[in-house]
Design a protein around this nucleic acid. Structure first.
Length: 425
RNA sequence: GGAGGAGUGGCAGAGCGGUUGAUUGCACCGGUCUUGAAAACCGGCGUACCGAGAGGUACCGGGGGUUCGAAUCCCUCCUCCUCCGCCA
């Protein structure tokens, strides 16, 4: 959520930014609407505050009059306060209502894109930030897509997942399970070596937590929900990990705070079938190592660059061909100011698969989360950033396909200490 | 799950219907003293909103209520502690 004061002070910049996110003229009226509602809010609040001030003063007088035994005067005053109360009750209702409407409108305004975000509406308009220079890997005749390789070598079993749970819940087996665990350990160890604190968070969160990172109220349909306990299964570790610092005021010297966490991620991904979602391309449960950074506004874009370098390093070490995209206004998430996607090339599918998304949210999340730091003069919102480092399922898909040989799947050197085998067959 | 107790500022801990946004101690920041430090002493020290400012308003786990007035009374939810039960 944007700060209302920011919108007020930077109205034209906000409108310009919304245009990059392809807001229509009609939608742009939200900005004026929000400012008008805030004006109304201020007015009501001022009136209410004045009324309450009067009430407080009268109540105090009643107290001293009672002590002095002047019952009649006190009684008269009591009646006046009673009338004030009627009006203040009315104003309180108006204030509550105005605030609710303001919030409802404000929550519809997405984050303002960073100046480097290219215009555009669809993924085709994303800018290739770093291309894969060398020729793309070519597989010989008879090369198989990962879902067939999985069957051949018993890496994972989606049909079995259907039996146990439903579609999109893979069951990893044998060396496939070991490979999964190896990747998780490798990613975590790399993050820890880069100075991130490892977190193992809860996999279910309450409403407040889901709201603070922006999953609610908008995207509840994307999360699994346990109605009986009013809990949500996390769609990413970002949610519980970032919320560790909800309602916290940090000392400036504590920034940056760097955290990493492995969790399974649960996404409902309402129905879509076809070749592009086969196998591990899109599933309801997948493993991911996430990195989260809370940083000073002056430094956050340098931090974002470092996070890109970290993720690049992982893919380099796995020897997977990848490219980095700078997302265009139309393809960015609601909450992000700047997002880079990492895609690995799936040689058998001849497609790029998204394996990471690294974003700077600036103050969009921290505002809703009331996550601030003290800078000597007062408090300021911190910048929050996060990225996948990395999402497992599609990395596994690409590894299986790109590394297939007649003898089996060749495990990247960097993983062999973790898997204990060089060949998955 | 059952029975009892408790939730107050960074921490500890008063207050239990009226000038208390909250005594006090510790921590922290500034000053005096000192060659420097410690000690001692003096001052400061929550957050948010409105306001140019003076100042005002709200917040004592969350929400609701009683009252002229609530940290203090009532209801409800949440959390923690003790005991019992169950359990990886």
């Amino acid at each position: 959520m944007l700060e209302i004061n920011f919108i007020r002070a930077n109205k034209s910049r906000v409108i310009q930014g919304l245009k990059v996110k392809n807001f229509s003229e009609e939608d742009l009226k939200l900005v004026e609407g929000v400012l008008a509602l805030d004006d109304a809010r201020k007015e009501v609040q001022t009136n209410l505050d004045n009324l309450l001030a009067e009430r407080n003063q009268l109540s105090k007088s009643i107290g001293s009059l009672m002590k002095e035994g002047k019952k009649d005067e006190a009684e008269a005053m009591r009646e006046r306060v009673a009338r004030l109360k009627e009006e203040s009750t009315r104003l309180e209702d108006t204030l509550r209502d105005t605030k609710a409407r303001l919030e409802e409108q404000l929550i519809k305004i997405p984050n303002i894109p960073h100046e480097s975000v290219p215009p555009g509406a669809t993924p085709e308009d994303n800018e290739v930030y770093k291309a894969w220079g060398e020729p793309l890997p070519e597989l010989g005749a008879g090369a198989l897509p990962h879902w067939e390789l999985a069957q051949k070598y018993g890496v994972f079993d989606l049909e079995l997942g259907v039996k146990l749970t439903g579609s999109g819940f893979p069951v990893y087996r044998g060396k496939g399970a070991k490979l999964e665990r190896a990747l998780i350990s490798f990613f975590l160890d790399e993050a820890i070596a880069a100075g991130f604190e490892e977190i193992i968070p809860p996999l279910m969160v309450n409403e407040d937590t889901a709201r603070a990172t922006g999953q609610l109220p908008d995207k509840e349909g994307q999360m699994y929900y346990v109605e009986r306990d009013n809990l949500y299964l996390i769609p990413t570790a970002e949610v519980p990990v970032t919320n560790i610092y909800r309602d916290v005021i940090l000392d400036e010297g504590r920034l940056p705070i760097k955290m990493t966490g492995y969790t399974p991620c649960f996404r409902r991904e309402a129905g879509s079938y076809g070749a592009h979602v086969r196998g591990l391309n899109r599933v309801h449960q997948f493993d991911k190592v996430e990195i989260v950074v809370l940083d000073h506004p002056d430094r956050s874009y340098e931090t974002l660059r470092q996070m890109l370098a970290h993720v690049s390093g992982l893919l380099d070490k796995l020897e997977l061909p990848y490219r980095i995209l700078r997302l265009c206004g139309g393809d960015m998430s609601f909450t992000s100011a700047l997002t880079f996607d990492f895609e690995v090339f799936s040689a058998a599918q001849k497609r790029w698969l998204e394996v990471s998304s690294v974003s700077n949210f600036e103050t969009f999340q921290s505002n809703r989360m009331k996550l601030r730091f003290r800078d000597g003069k007062g408090t300021r919102l911190v910048h929050t950033l996060n990225g996948s480092a990395l999402a497992l399922a599609r990395v596994v898909a690409a590894l299986l396909e790109n590394n297939q040989t007649p003898e089996g799947i060749v495990i990247p050197k960097v993983l062999r200490n973790y898997t204990g085998f060089e060949l998955l067959n």
